[in-house]
Write a protein that binds this DNA or RNA. Structure first.
Lengths: 197, 197, 197, 197
DNA sequence: CATGAATGAGAATTCATTCAT
DNA sequence: CATGAATGAATTCTCATTCAT
């Protein structure tokens, strides 16, 4: 099942694509409708045919991106193999998406401080949607004796916190680790923590 | 030893205090010099007497905040007790600072995507400054047989990634966990991960 | 043949007309976009819809004025009559244009000290464009035994230098000489100098 | 008789020197009190101890410069030799002063369009002061049968018009003529005009 | 479906100037 | 004689948005 746009209007998509790129580069406030018009190849006024206002564009982009992240993550969480294999797949998917294009989603978290209700709701839904597949992954891991039983939500927060941090660190430091190494490091930390057992 | 401003100009500090609050609420771009003038009680032009431009204010605030975070964290990392006690103190300190006032520091990470050299340099320094005390904490933990040997930098990224994520999650969900519970959850995840050992 | 704007946008021209008047009165730096907006009857933001910035407006005005001056001067230089008649026509044209509206062009020379490349280029082009018709006028005057052979460029500089000076002097002193008298005085000086032959 | 400052206050002169340089580069409106403070090495507030306002500084600079130009020109007009020699000396002096430092005086003419009474008065005085020595030079030239009799004022306007124009032309084109050549060209034009006698 | 033209509100920044010390 | 601090008014320019065509 792929992401489904109810209506595929080419110029509408051109706007969303251009906006995704701008948001990824500059967050919410850091780009203007003028830039969006230039980048999308449409006139400013035309954009207002497709979207109510800037906020609407921002939300539409996020919606699309988060839908994609959640869908791919759920797929990875349900991939074949044991729980650790599937957790590895989830991590791999996250890093791939970030590398590929979806830094936008990080931007959403960043802007969250604005505390705008709509944005917070979106992010809550994002976490909620992930809770089910990740929860199932964790539960089956426990049944397979691979994971110890932990609170699903805490684990979710931990998993994505570590992954975010590694992505940020990589951007900041320009780390040259291969994708595989990055995935294994994350998995190690996630599975064993730093304690001596 | 507390943070020491070489020169304490009252109105300069009034600007920095007002700016900290605005940055905490709205990030970098989300506030105007007009608002800052109102909040600080000074005229717009007066602010430019003390700072070169908006970027200068932003950086000065961050500098101060990060200095404080790093200083407090280093203190906690060197507090009495075994390695786990001291790690607990570090975590506690981080959450306290965030709760108290220092959400600003999160904002820095958020805005990092702007990829402005100055900001990135600041964040790099922040991580570098933390590497020594946290590294010592980890090493002594290994010597006490409490921690397993892990790469210091990876551990640092993991520790702060988890803490960030919990702070964000708390803001988003409005979690009612007590501070103590939050600290223990974090410590659990950090020490044991989710794996079954 | 008159000045021909490839595209005649009414409000763009309103801006140029208002700007011409302001530049004539106050030079480059001595007027503000607010005044221009008031004078042109458009909103400030609308002006920026038509022009990139203040410099762009300034240059566009100059371009138009200088084109007009050069065109009219060339016409006069090619008018019927002997070389002296035609020189008289050139002088007459210059004074008429200044009196009519085109003090702006003087302003350009004044502001030249700013040494901005764009402005200098414009002025160089202005001189170059005049060199051909004035050169022909001088040459034919020599053939008619009315002028002595002189370097074209030196003569051009001299002619316009004297005319500029008389315009300035008139503005300063409020001279009441008739236009005809002014033209004849200029012609006398130009033809005979002050030497005794 | 040399230029006489009633009181020689060192910091006052520092301001005037800095202002002269700024005016030469940027005209009246193109520099700020901040720049003047930097350049003069004094605090902005200190400048206001010595001068009433910006206009006062501008006028004081002009006053000083024009006094110098007039004094030197009068000296040259009264130098030994016949009338043509002395005219040559006047021209030479003008070009030397411009080259040396006194482009400021050109700036005054430029800004004249502002039509501020004070400035116009200054420039009128400048012309009036020159009228006597130049008039005498012309008269003696007539008596020596070197010049033909012309109206003094017209001649003054012509002489300075041509010189201005050559200075401007030189700045614009970056002409590499030697000072001597420039002087002789000017003299030629001035004496003989372009007519065939 | 598309757009050029238009705009009020507001952005950051600079201005010449004043005043307490 | 000197200055750091302060400011109201003004600067250029950008913003998201609307509307007639």
């Amino acid at each position: 099942m792929t992401v489904q746009n109810t209506l595929e209007i080419p110029s509408r998509d051109a706007v969303l694509d251009a906006a995704r790129s701008l948001i990824a580069d500059h967050g919410y406030a850091g780009w203007s409708m003028r830039e969006l018009a230039n980048k999308s190849g449409l006139a400013k006024a035309t954009i207002y045919h497709h979207f109510a206002d800037k906020q609407d564009i921002y939300m539409s982009v996020l919606e699309r991106e988060i839908a994609l992240i959640n869908e791919r993550t759920a797929e990875a969480a349900n991939s074949p193999g044991n729980a650790i294999d599937r957790l590895r797949a989830v991590i791999r998917t996250f890093y791939d998406l970030q590398a590929e294009r979806h830094v936008v989603f990080m931007s959403a978290i960043r802007e969250m401080s604005h505390n705008e209700t709509q944005l917070c709701n979106l992010l809550r839904r994002y976490r909620n949607d992930l809770l089910a597949p990740i929860g199932q992954l964790l539960d089956s891991g426990v049944r397979e004796n691979l994971f110890r039983p932990v609170n699903d939500e805490m684990a979710l927060v931990t998993i994505f916190g570590i992954m975010h941090s590694f992505v940020t660190h990589r951007l900041l430091i320009g780390d040259v680790k291969t994708a595989d190494e990055l995935v294994e490091h994350t998995l190690q930390m996630l599975l064993n923590g730093i304690g001596n057992h």
